[in-house]
């Protein structure tokens, strides 16, 4: 089964949030569970990026690409990138993969590739 990462759409005003929050940022609707999960777009453009050389202990690699991507449809997300020569504005596609291993736990998240 393909894994999805979801944004959360307010059932009252339609505002889409990522990540999840308990109360709508736009209309302030203060009811429990009033968000509808909507899958995040699988394409977007690179807003900014870095290569991190000083890594948290869970990562046993020499460097890690991180990026903020503006997804098509208006949501902006943070994730890892695996792009050799990244440039801002570059079109990217999004895959959902294991982004962190912490003991036996595997955490899934967004990984950006050149489109």
């Amino acid at each position: 089964m393909p894994r999805e990462i979801y944004a959360y759409k307010c059932r009252k005003c339609g505002h889409v949030h990522y990540p999840y929050r308990m109360v709508c940022k736009n209309c302030g609707k203060n009811e429990h569970n009033e968000f509808e999960p909507v899958p995040l777009s699988k394409s977007g453009s690179l807003l900014t990026f870095t290569t991190l050389y000083s890594l948290p202990p869970d990562f046993e690699v020499p460097s890690l690409g991180l990026a903020i991507v503006a997804l098509d449809g208006g949501i902006t997300v943070t994730g890892q990138h695996r792009i050799d020569e990244p440039e801002t504005g570059m079109a990217v596609r999004v895959e959902v993969e294991v982004v962190r291993r912490d003991g036996y736990d595997e955490h899934y998240g967004m990984v950006f590739y050149k489109a």
Binding site: Y20, F49, P56, P57, F59, Q80, T88
Partner: peptide, 30 residues
């Protein structure tokens, strides 16, 4: 650095290996 990174968003930032230096770096590029 990892201890300070625990103040980033747990599921939208921290799981990716985001640290404060990496957020500052992405901000600096912009």
């Amino acid at each position: 650095t990892d201890f300070v990174a625990t103040l980033t968003h747990p599921i939208a930032e921290h799981i990716y290996g985001v640290t404060l230096p990496s957020l500052a770096a992405m901000f600096t590029r912009l």
